Simulated assay, not measured.
Amino acid sequence: MRQNPSFAMTDPAELRRVVERHPWATIVSAADDGLVASHYVVLLDDTRDDLTVVGHVGRPDDLIHGLGDRELLISFQGPHGYISPGWYGDVASVPTWNFVSVHLTGVPEILSDAENLRVLERMVDVFENRMPNPRGMWTLPNDEAFVQRLAVGTVGFRLTPTKVGAKRKLSQNKPLETVDEILVALEGSGAYANAELAAEMRRAHEVRRERQS
């Protein structure tokens, strides 16, 4: 991802927040017959306080990606959306797309069967605990035989990135008054209203406003 100092994200806490809130990731590697991409849930490693992540792939994706032997790029896509030039007022302008993205690159380690099972359990709990009646991985009618068959079909991994690229393009290069107008449109009810992107922009916008005050 080409970096731009105006849009760079470098705060580890902010990077962790984006990864935690947007766990549906794209895993990319250079396979023997060309580039390959897969899509899986990837979580922050809850035993670490850095950008180490854990996840799993279904067999035979582990072989396709050369899991554990080759470098992977894991891409997390945060809020994103269309920005109309009509929101900039009466100035020459073109459409653009605002977004937040985090790329983690490294060679993952393969988890043991016990570690993989723990990660699978945690993945279920992370999402099921939001439900009114959570169904954990071990909740009936699931039994041990079912869970073990499920686990055997997956390969868990842990990746501590050796390279991190992150970008937050949220109209930081526009006047504060213009950003206010963009936020009005995104928080409205029009064709390109986008409350999630607006919230991310407002977060960055308020920090910028404080720095310039």
Rank of each mutant, 00 (worst) to 15 (best):
L72K: 14
E200K: 07
Q172Y: 11
A193H: 06
F99M: 06
P141D: 01
V126F: 13
V19Q: 00
M131D: 12
T154C: 09
L63F: 03
G55L: 01
G34M: 04
N4T: 06
P108E: 03
E181Y: 03
G165Y: 07
V179C: 00
G81A: 14
Y40I: 12
V36E: 01
M131E: 14
V102R: 05
G136Y: 10
E109N: 08
V28W: 01
R130Y: 04
L73R: 05
V147N: 15
G86Q: 08
D125T: 14
A204G: 13
S189W: 02
M137S: 05
T139L: 03
R135V: 07
R48N: 03
E144G: 13
G68C: 11
M131T: 04
A145P: 02
G55Y: 02
E109A: 14
F127P: 08
L150I: 03
R209E: 01
Y192I: 03
V207A: 15
A145F: 06
A92R: 05
D49C: 03
A185D: 06
A191P: 12
D143I: 02
W97P: 07
D143L: 05
N142A: 13
G68L: 05
K174N: 03
R158S: 12
P134E: 10
L104A: 08
P95N: 04
A30Y: 12
I182W: 00
A191G: 08
P132I: 06
E71K: 10
W97L: 12
E210R: 15
R2H: 14
R48V: 09
I110W: 05
D180R: 13
R130N: 11
V119M: 15
G58V: 11
V41W: 04
A191D: 13
N129L: 11
K174P: 00
T160W: 00
A204C: 15
P132W: 05
V57N: 06
A193M: 04
R211L: 07
N194C: 09
R118D: 14
H39Q: 10
S84T: 08
R209I: 02
L63P: 01
